[in-house]
Write a protein that binds this DNA or RNA. Structure first.
Length: 467
DNA sequence: ATGTTC
């Protein structure tokens, strides 16, 4: 018996040596070459049956692990070409975002997708990306700020019933901005989401409960904001008469809690797919029939509810301070994954910076700190997996904005539109964003505009450089 | 987006 005959059978690497050693023992036991080759083929065909002992146990162990590695490579292999997907506002989208979406559409778990007109490059899936997968969820397909969402409260007040100075004082008193920030202990709010039993179901949730409790009702940093403005409703809708109303609009997420959940499960997903193509490494997924997949699904949905709770508190505080109850309220999450029927299939639809837009579903698409936002009603377009943009979308990265935009130009932009800004950084300048009018115009087959919100007094975190 | 980080 020699190595040539063994390799001819298809044994590879360490298995060749182990097969030779076993064959030698069988020769000593008096078996013919032909009989030994038959035995080796039998081991090769079903190594699992030889694992427990005997002369072929070591070979069987090696073959089993080679099989598993091969299987892992196959399940992690990308499709040679991306599945087709539709793009809205192609002329507004940078090539990098298209490339990221192409990679996402090459994942073996991907089934359908779409790119919204506010799309720009993000971690893993682009912002403005919609991705439907089969039986698996991608933590970075949802994003770091799990459950990031919008809320609008329309108040039963005339727009001019609140002065700019009063609005400023209310925002300063009742909102908190900045990474790691929480309300002072004596001023901290509470919410039923903090008392759910879910927090006790996983070590990672138990660990993060106290942080979540500290930060409840706060707004974070980056593009998050709370603002007073004027809602213009051209015709009766939302249970309201046509007209102009004082309104509060907020953009907030799941704060440190959601960020740590996202990073924890992304690491788990990457560890589960060690052979995943490096181009798709940030799109590592968790199969939903695994313990890890179920744990992420539970944690993600808790972070989604927690983000909504932050809006609950922000709006309740401001309304109470004004002595009113909202006359109407609209809101939506735009960083989350949902189970959704897509054609014949029950899929996991990731929206990473995309507004759910089922037929008749209300949503909010903000512009920028000084540009209008829109209340929209979904048209349930199946090619967009019933989605729309989540905002105007960046046309300039944070660094590029800080390097190229001038403070006085941003100040002039705010002044021209009569917007008062508290905090805010040059990296969030309106000029760093696409023109919201263009972005809305590109998605007329995804949503109908119901009302326009014009910001007047805006609070954001202080950016890398103040405006 | 988070908070000073595998």
């Amino acid at each position: 018996m020699n190595g040539k005959q063994i390799t001819k059978l298809g044994f590879e690497k360490k298995a060749i040596k182990l097969a030779l050693a076993a064959a030698g023992q069988r020769e000593k036991a008096g078996l013919s070459r032909h009989e030994i080759l038959d035995e080796l083929q039998a081991v090769q065909a079903n190594p699992q049956a030889y694992l427990t002992g005997g002369v072929y146990a070591e070979l069987a162990t090696e073959l089993t692990s080679q099989q598993e590695a091969q299987q892992a490579r196959q399940t992690a292999a990308l499709r040679p070409t991306p599945l087709p997907y539709r793009v809205w506002g192609e002329d507004l989208i940078e090539p990098g975002a298209r490339t990221q979406m192409d990679v996402a559409m090459q994942l073996p778990i991907s089934r359908a997708g779409a790119l919204m007109p506010d799309a720009h490059v993000g971690y893993g899936l682009p912002i403005g990306g919609v991705l439907a997968t089969q039986d698996a969820v991608i933590p970075y397909g949802v994003g770091v700020d799990i459950g990031c969402s919008m809320r609008l409260s329309v108040l039963p007040l005339k727009p001019d019933s609140l002065t700019t100075d009063e609005a400023r004082k209310l925002l300063l008193k009742h909102t908190r901005f900045g990474a790691g920030v929480s309300f002072e202990k004596s001023f901290r709010g509470d919410h039923e989401v903090l008392h759910e039993g879910t927090w006790r179901d996983q070590p990672v949730l138990r660990h993060l409960h106290d942080k979540a409790a500290e930060q409840i009702g706060t707004s974070g940093s980056g593009n998050h904001f709370v603002e007073f403005g004027t809602l213009t409703l051209p015709q009766a809708d939302l249970g309201l008469e046509a007209g102009e109303y004082l309104a509060v609009l907020s953009h907030s997420g799941s704060r440190g809690f959601g960020a740590q959940v996202a990073n924890h499960f992304t690491k788990l997903a990457q560890a589960l797919h060690p052979t995943l193509d490096p181009a798709a490494r940030k799109l590592a997924w968790l199969p939903l029939d695994t313990e890890e997949g179920q744990a992420y699904w539970q944690a993600m949905n808790l972070a989604g509810r927690y983000a909504l709770a932050n809006h609950d508190l922000i709006h309740a505080r401001l309304a109470r301070a004004l002595g009113v109850q909202p006359a109407a309220s609209v809101g939506n999450s735009h960083n989350l994954a949902w189970r959704q029927r897509v054609g014949e299939h029950d899929l996991i639809v990731h929206r990473k910076g995309a507004t759910p837009a089922e037929q008749g579903q209300l949503g909010l698409i903000p512009g920028s700190m000084a540009d209008p936002g829109f209340v929209v009603r979904g048209r349930g377009n199946p090619d967009a997996l019933a989605s729309a943009s989540h905002g105007a979308g960046r046309q300039m990265g944070r660094k590029a904005a800080a390097n190229t935009l001038a403070k006085r130009d941003v100040q002039a932009y705010l002044r021209e539109r009569g917007v008062t800004l508290i905090g805010g950084g040059i990296d969030e300048a309106p000029q760093a964003y696409k023109r919201i009018e263009n972005v809305i115009a590109r998605q007329g087959d995804l949503v109908d505009v119901v009302a326009q919100f014009t910001p007047r007094v805006v609070r954001m975190d202080t950016g890398s450089e103040d405006v």
